[in-house]
Simulated assay, not measured.
Amino acid sequence: LDLRWGIGGLPFTGSHGRQMGGWVRLRDEPSAEPVSEAHLLALVDAWPPAVLPHLSKPAAGSTLSWTIEFVQPLANLTTQDWCRYCATIEHARDGYGHTSAMLYTAEGKLIAISRQTVTVFG
């Protein structure tokens, strides 16, 4: 996958913003094929948990729960198209973080909604 960071701090930089994300696409696709739900799942799952930029050093973490919804009908995308990802921390405290994230087409059309609860051990 190709990632282009564009929102918020990188993991383990001590950043304190509530949002994180940027641009993502599949890498080295030889031809443009229609995007499936499996492709979209990979594009969303490529990003680290949005709470990691708050940490100043690496720490172990784990997903406690994760859901994803694919907006139907699927957007008319190919495996060579860029998508924009933006995650927002809704609440984080005592090693737990609750985030929501959206995946959009380059034109701004919503294509997936993700919700994740993570824990960080540090």
Results as ranks from 00 to 15, higher is better:
74 L>E: 02
66 W>I: 11
111 I>K: 05
89 I>H: 00
88 T>G: 03
30 P>R: 11
115 R>D: 11
81 D>E: 10
15 S>T: 04
100 S>A: 14
53 P>R: 08
90 E>C: 03
77 L>N: 03
82 W>Q: 06
78 T>R: 05
6 G>D: 12
53 P>H: 14
98 H>Q: 10
87 A>G: 12
17 G>F: 03
5 W>L: 12
16 H>D: 06
117 T>I: 13
11 P>I: 15
26 L>K: 10
118 V>Y: 02
83 C>L: 15
73 P>S: 09
106 A>W: 00
14 G>V: 11
56 S>E: 14
72 Q>K: 15
26 L>Y: 00
75 A>Y: 09
4 R>I: 10
97 G>Y: 04
59 A>H: 04
60 A>P: 07
18 R>D: 05
96 Y>N: 00
98 H>W: 13
107 E>W: 00
18 R>K: 11
79 T>L: 12
103 L>Q: 10
38 A>N: 09
59 A>T: 06
84 R>L: 12
56 S>M: 09
22 G>V: 13
11 P>L: 14
7 I>P: 02
61 G>T: 07
2 D>A: 12
95 G>E: 06
118 V>D: 07
38 A>I: 10
19 Q>N: 06
79 T>P: 02
67 T>V: 08
31 S>V: 15
100 S>P: 00
55 L>N: 00
100 S>F: 09
107 E>F: 00
58 P>Y: 05
46 A>G: 07
80 Q>E: 10
94 D>I: 05
115 R>H: 13
34 P>Q: 02
61 G>H: 15
86 C>N: 11
31 S>T: 15
105 T>L: 07
33 E>H: 11
30 P>S: 11
86 C>Y: 04
88 T>Y: 03
67 T>N: 11
15 S>E: 10
19 Q>H: 09
18 R>L: 09
32 A>H: 02
75 A>K: 07
85 Y>M: 15
69 E>L: 15
8 G>N: 06
17 G>L: 14
38 A>V: 15
76 N>L: 14
77 L>C: 09
75 A>D: 05
85 Y>I: 14
49 P>E: 07
64 L>K: 01
14 G>E: 06
12 F>C: 02
27 R>V: 10
121 F>Y: 07
13 T>N: 04
14 G>Y: 03
103 L>Y: 03
42 A>I: 12
71 V>D: 05
92 A>S: 07
53 P>M: 11
10 L>F: 03
41 L>K: 00
53 P>E: 11
68 I>L: 14
64 L>N: 01
119 T>H: 11
34 P>V: 08
100 S>H: 12
4 R>Y: 01
3 L>K: 12
